[in-house]
Design a protein around this nucleic acid. Structure first.
Lengths: 140, 140
DNA sequence: TTATTTGCAAACGGTTTGCCGATTA
DNA sequence: TAATCGGCAAACCGTTTGCAAATAA
């Protein structure tokens, strides 16, 4: 069956090559297989992708990931610098454990509303936002 | 007179060299001279610094900026990737105009409180956070 | 068929580092 | 004086790109 990403590519007129199908599949499965803290970088994606087709180059992964980002399918994160990491765009925030690097996703309506309010007060219409919390696990 | 950064270096036992003094001075003056939207990257810092002492290398600026960051004096931003940008650490958030790239700083107690609450609910003690809003200027 | 895409390897740009003479405390 | 720092140039590493062959529509 066709992944959501493939459908979105059709909508946007993005040509569907074999390589892109494989990358789309890997991205779509990311959360199911690796859990919600999965935000793979390009290298990791390339590793997973070459298990299905080992002819796919890392340049293609870079190009595809950028293409998907421009199409609004993926979002790119630059958590505390280093290499960029990707996930399917579904608008949530991240809490990063500064010890383990583990990522917890969350959404909060109140914070969302406040952000819109603040932007308006400053004379802007909010079009995007990034909220990252960095924390230490509280031991029980 | 001695800049705040120099004082903090003394506190932390960071050796004060001529080069570091110049860089500290430039950083301290940043907001006064260039306004609150000033978040210079290393290249820009190097340009400003070499107007005072043109012998200072860019490697030294990189090393100093990292040193100051580790001492908690500066914060490093990676706004939508590219090159890192720095400013004195005084805990506020940023709204970035996606047309002009202009930066508006703001603080909001309500959002701050909510962040602590969310982290706690998820089982974490909040130690740091990053909030960036991206907006379009509303025309009057 | 024709525009687009891919793989390869080389180039790029920001950042880091090894070496060694200079400087700070 | 002993430990640290700074300048230089080379290395590094994630990412981008020019080119010619391969492929989707």
């Amino acid at each position: 069956m066709m992944s959501t990403i493939e459908e979105k590519c059709k909508e946007k007129g993005v040509r569907l090559t074999d390589q892109r199908k494989v990358i789309a599949k890997i991205l779509s499965e990311s959360k199911e297989v690796y859990g919600s803290k999965d935000h793979p970088d390009v290298d990791e994606l390339h590793k997973r992708v070459t298990k299905i087709d080992d002819k796919i180059s890392i340049a293609t992964v870079y190009r595809t990931v950028k293409l998907f980002e421009e199409a609004g399918i993926l979002i790119k994160h630059d958590f505390k610098a280093g290499k960029a990491r990707y996930e399917i765009n579904d608008d949530h925030n991240h809490l990063i454990d500064i010890n383990s690097g583990e990522i917890v996703e969350f959404v909060d309506k109140d914070i969302e509303a406040l952000q819109v309010k603040i932007a308006n007060k400053l004379g802007y219409k909010l079009v995007d936002h990034k909220l990252e919390l960095y924390g230490l696990k509280i031991k029980k």
